[in-house]
Amino acid sequence: MGLKESLAKLTMISIKRGDVLFREGVQSNGAMFFLFEGQLDIYKNFDGKQAKVRSILPGEFFGEMAIINNSPRAASVIAVSEVAKLGVINRQTFGKMSQESPEFLFLLLKRIIERLFETESRIRQIRAEREAAAASEEPLPVVAPPEDDQESSEESSDEEELPELED
C-alpha cells in the first residue's frame, strides 16, 4: 500500500484562521499532522519573543518530533488561512503507516536530517561570526590572556562533542 492510500484513511480535522493547533512547550498528545489544505505558520519563542520560523503548506507532514521522541512541542502552530484541513496521525496510525508505506519513514528521516543540518550550520555560523567579532574587538588585552585561553578551549571542546556529520 502506498502513502497516498494511507493518507486517504486519516481522520480529518478542520481549524479556522487564528486557531492554535498546538503550543510550544506543551506536552504533546503524541500526534503529528499532514496538511491537506490551507496554510499554517510555525512560531517559536526566542528569548521571550515569538518569531515566525516558516509556513507549512499543503502536502507537508509536521509535528513528528512528538511521536518519535515524546518531547514537548518544539514550536507553536497557528492557522493563517481561513480554513485549514489536516489529517491526524496518532501513534497507532503512525505504526500502521510505517508498515504500509516505507517511504513515509524515509520522508520523515530526510526532513529531520535536513533540519539537523540547517540547525548545525546556523550554530557554526553564529559561532564563527562571534569569533570574528571578538577578534576584531580585541586590540586591547584587557582580559587576562590565560582566562581567555581557557574560554576558547572550552568552546572548542564543546564543539568536539557535537556530532557534525554533515559531509
Partner: peptide, 9 residues
C-alpha cells in the same frame, strides 16, 4: 529517525 530527532533536539 529517533537518533536524529534526539540530535536535533
Amino acid at each position: 529517525l529517533q537518533t536524529y530527532v534526539e540530535r536535533l533536539i
